[in-house]
Design a protein around this nucleic acid. Structure first.
Lengths: 213, 213
DNA sequence: ACCTGAACACCGTTCAAGT
DNA sequence: ACCTGAACACCGTTCAAGT
């Protein structure tokens, strides 16, 4: 019979990612992750210090998936690609943002990522202060966009129309919201995704003007 | 003896806010909220449908604290004030962002807020499409900034220096991160808070240019 | 109408015991 | 060295019972 491969911190984190992708952060319990590995919950404690350490590792695993900027590219396409990659990865694991909010210990993948982004900006003539500005505004935008995108009240598949019906917005109470829905969303195959590029370009334009590059 | 005031949905949500402010979202359990009110957990079910409904109400309560734009102000200061107010409120209740990520049912306070912001933009000459762009980029920025701010690895009081010591960043592995810390953070009474205004002004400039107002 | 106690199926973690 | 069973103090929720 196929003897079960030995447990390891990596295999435990892998299993936790699978559980989270399947049912969200709430289902990531020591018991569920153990079951995913065909093992009792208590066995996991030989490989991770506890649930908190497992969640730290989970967060760092996701950041490791985000593409690093190539060291020799101009900053603007490099930052645009990084933002797009971060959005794809964080949207694919919607539970990851919930982790960002509560994890205080930056892991090696996150530190590596920060270093690569700063390096790209510095090599392209950004001062240290300007690189700090750029990183702050870009990161905030990407995180925040994914946060609202993940939280959209309608599923990506169904489109907003069904949702609008269900919400049954009282027009007199929320006239401007109703206008927005009627003119900009309903029946227009409104893709919230397009907003991402608009805001990103706006920010990159602003950074280019201020950095003088 | 002072007879206990009758329970009500409002009092239950109030108690949940107190529990969350004290110990974070993880401590908001039906049992803990009940204890806060001097009542058994099961009593709460007569006033809220369940824990999920309680969390929805908790999220909407926080949004209700964010200041609405005055109806007759120019859009730019109104948006700047709204962003600042949202940042203050969300930072004061750091657990609220964790709720945004998981709540799909917009409550009345959130709808009212959205409507007021859109109204301000429309009255100031923004087209419907441009108002959608503006709302998207501003909201993403504010949410994302608070998310990273709340998650800063050092406490607001202690400043970053102690943290930098504790992290003991390996300079050879993360040269650019080390440079940023050495030149821009350490001993310079670096206030991450200042980054908020920088990014916000950058975005408002971009919107003004694009909206032509 | 409102509150409760017991119960059920969960949770993280400790610890002594097994192999 | 690695895995486990029982135990402890929790969790959301149901339900029959009390007032």
């Amino acid at each position: 019979m196929p003897t079960r491969p030995a447990l390891s911190p990596e295999r435990v984190v892998d299993a936790a990612v699978r559980v989270a992708d399947r049912g969200g952060l709430a289902l990531v319990s020591m018991r569920n992750v153990g079951r995913e590995l065909g093992v009792e919950a208590m066995s996991l404690y030989h490989h991770v210090a506890g649930k908190d350490a497992l969640l730290d590792a989970l967060a760092d695993r996701v950041f490791g998936e985000i593409g690093l900027p190539a060291p020799d590219r101009p900053w603007r396409p490099a930052m645009a690609d990084r933002a797009a990659s971060a959005r794809v990865v964080l949207s694919a694991h919607p539970w990851a943002l919930g982790l960002v909010e509560s994890r205080r210990n930056p892991g090696p993948a996150l530190l590596r990522h920060h270093d690569a982004v700063l390096g790209c900006l510095r090599r392209n003539g950004f001062t240290v202060a300007m690189a700090a500005h750029a990183y702050s505004v870009l990161d905030a935008y990407v995180y925040g966009f994914v946060l609202t995108e993940v939280n959209l009240p309608f599923e990506p598949g169904e489109g907003p129309d069904e949702f609008v019906e269900a919400l049954n917005l009282p027009v007199d109470a929320y006239p401007h919201l109703a206008e927005m829905v009627a003119e900009h969303v309903r029946g227009r195959d409104y893709a919230y995704a397009h907003e991402f590029e608009y805001g990103l370009e706006l920010i990159l334009d602003g950074l280019a003007a201020r950095a003088g590059t």
